[in-house]
Design a binder for these strands. Structure first.
Length: 131
DNA sequence: GTTGTGACATCGC
DNA sequence: CGCGATGCCACAA
């Protein structure tokens, strides 16, 4: 089910921000939960340290309810692997179609495929596409 | 009221 | 570099 791990102050709004950020991730790139959480603004009145500690879970919770149109497949954990969940194979297949290479251990090289950020997303798209 | 668990992150070996 | 184990909060049984 959706545990919702510690609901953020405004779950609906937080989820919307997460989805918006995920939509900015270009094809062929991947982002980690913590990265997405870090790109989002910290809710007021909340200790950044706590936010950093739990926001990744909230991102996960948001992905659990991700609507259509959101490239949820590009969001993986900091280890560069797909979290063990039903549909993981589907996710991996989709990423491979986008050009993301998987290691022999079902792992992605984050140094190479991790999303640089929302500012450089446009450059990434129109600039050099990998050989 | 208590126990277990979760689309993660980080530290240690 | 890779893999295993631990911790955080809140909510469900």
């Amino acid at each position: 089910m959706s545990p919702g791990f510690s609901s953020p102050p405004n779950p609906a709004e937080f989820n919307a921000q997460v989805w918006a950020m995920v939509r900015k991730v270009p094809a062929g790139k991947v982002a980690t939960y913590g990265q997405i959480a870090g790109l989002l603004a910290v809710p007021e009145g909340m200790n950044p340290r706590d936010y950093q500690a739990f926001s990744p879970r909230w991102v996960g919770g948001a992905m659990a309810a991700c609507p259509e149109g959101v490239p949820w497949q590009r969001i993986i954990n900091s280890q560069g692997k797909i979290s063990p969940r039903p549909g993981a194979e589907e996710q991996r297949r989709l990423l491979e179609e986008e050009g993301v290479e998987f290691n022999a251990r079902d792992r992605v090289d984050l140094k190479r495929y991790q999303w640089a950020g929302p500012e450089q997303s446009q450059q990434e798209q129109q600039a050099s596409f990998w050989p």
